[in-house]
């Protein structure tokens, strides 16, 4: 499984994004990280061809949240056959925006001295959860009331054997903040907020019943198409 970092959100293990057979011997694995406000694409490049690889560069297509490389892809030496190099590419969110389907789809082009190769990958939405995503309590109540009921989505998080405090702490390390907590008829109700890099707020109610590993998550957002991906982020964070 992946690793949680002390000062950042959950990092999934690297997955193969571009198999060597589709890229004339270049294999790319990667994952996304967010640490103290910085987003990175962590990459592993392997040369499975018979010739040396040089002149690497990377480019992203326009995407839903404007993710873009914040620096060139720096492979300092030629990559020999059978050689692997690990890189961390810093990203920002000031690139061109175009709504993708699914919302978290990222199309990437990588070139080297042999050719240009294309692949798509999905980024976990929690790398976009900003550090100042704790909404003021008064604002939370007003916003919760203001967002229409039809913008509320409800999800079940099953088989999650955490107590309320552990769940809340885990979520907070991925920038999902508990604004208030109440206990009604034996169940804990956590009211939480998060903010995406593009300024979109998401409000949540997480219901946890002691001894019941199934949580109920209700999400309210003015852009309800993000709710499904925020739910996925909750699943990933709570179960890792």
């Amino acid at each position: 499984s992946g690793v949680g970092t002390l000062s950042g959100s959950y990092v999934a293990p690297k997955a193969v994004w571009l198999p060597a057979m589709k890229a004339k011997g270049l294999e790319i694995s990667g994952t996304f990280t967010r640490q103290v406000g910085s987003i990175s694409m962590d990459l592993q490049l392997t040369n499975k061809a018979l010739q040396v690889m040089t002149d690497f560069a990377i480019q992203f297509n326009r995407n839903s949240f404007g993710l873009a490389p914040a620096a060139p892809l720096q492979v300092h030496a030629p990559l020999s056959p059978n050689q692997t190099v690990e890189l961390s590419l810093p990203l920002n969110t000031v690139g061109s925006v175009m709504k993708m389907e699914p919302l978290n789809n990222l199309q990437v082009a990588v070139k080297n001295n042999i050719d240009v190769f294309y692949f798509s990958t999905l980024y976990p939405l929690h790398v976009l959860f900003v550090e100042d995503g704790k909404m003021d309590r008064q604002m939370f109540l007003a916003t919760w009331k203001d967002i229409p009921n039809e913008n509320e989505a409800q999800f079940q998080i099953r088989d999650c054997p955490l107590n309320t405090e552990t769940a809340s702490n885990k979520l907070q390390s991925s920038n999902i903040f508990t604004v208030a907590k109440r206990n009604v008829e034996g169940q804990d109700m956590l009211y939480q907020s998060l903010k995406l890099t593009n300024g979109i707020w998401v409000l949540a109610e997480l219901r946890i019943q002691p001894g019941n590993p199934n949580f109920t998550l209700s999400l309210k957002c003015r852009a309800p198409e993000v709710s499904q991906h925020v739910y996925q982020a909750y699943e990933t964070i709570l179960k890792n």
Binding site: R182, V184, Y191, E205
Partner: peptide
């Protein structure tokens, strides 16, 4: 702690969500 009415408002919200 200052009673700004928000504690009570959150209690009402939680109550209304449990027993609509």
């Amino acid at each position: 702690e200052l009673d700004d009415g928000l504690d009570e408002a959150f209690s009402r919200l939680a109550q209304s969500r449990t027993n609509p």
